[in-house]
Amino acid sequence: MKKFMPVEELARDERFNQITQADRMADGRVALLADSEKSRRSNRLTPARPDASEAARALMHGIFVGEIQALEGAGRTCWDFTTGEEAPFELKLDMARQAWDEARHVEISLKLSDWMGSEIGQYAENTVLFQAACSNDPVLRLAGVNRALEGLAIDVFTTMKEFGELAGDPYLEFCEDWMFADEVTHVKMGSDWLRKITENDPERRKKALEFQGIVDKMFSYGGSRSDSEESSFAIARRFRELAGFTEDENDHIADLGMQALNERKAQLREKQAAASN
């Protein structure tokens, strides 16, 4: 069986349409509220948003495809690296457990999508999550998948759980809470293995953390995640700490989110100005 499968070869049926992060960022349209409306609303994904149902549905589909890609990423880590030499058996065992969790999350997300009124493939699938799982160094993969991707999952699940709680949706709140608990474990696995494997190799650890920073910025999706009310979801600092992120690391992710938000806003201003000329 092939090792190190590129993102283009992910198996999907005709219901799915895949796009890249570059496709997404090429969209010059504004998806944030106009300045005049900011005084009375924020962009946080809460039931108070007029488009809350549609936005929550789209995010749930994003979670669904994200879970598929996380399953594929964890599964590939079990297969792509030689046991013992490149990756310890216990690490692979953790990745196998994670793959099992992710498969369950795919099923749960699918049922939640039905409940919220969307269908498989209704929205484009951004393949950026799997791209973070394509590194040929298992430590970088742990940094990209278990810390950046699963860290993002903590932020997203916190938002969705709160959304369900505020709206009084018992299924959404319950399901997100259960999946969320798994994500904290996945991040913890990544944090623990990253420290353990690079214990005597500070250079490799530095490289992994740099890679995590790049992925974290990509996963801020042009500012969708930051401490600013302009972002759809916040950084779930408390739960991230439980998963092994330090306060400094959370501050760094928050800074990356703000950077991504400001860069995206500048980029959109430029595109809109060019279009109006």
Binding site: S53, E54, R57, W115, M116, G117, S118, A167, D169
Partner: peptide, 12 residues
């Protein structure tokens, strides 16, 4: 159209 989407909106 997806009726379930509108049920969900009404419930929200």
């Amino acid at each position: 159209l997806n009726k379930q989407a509108w049920i969900y909106n009404f419930r929200n």
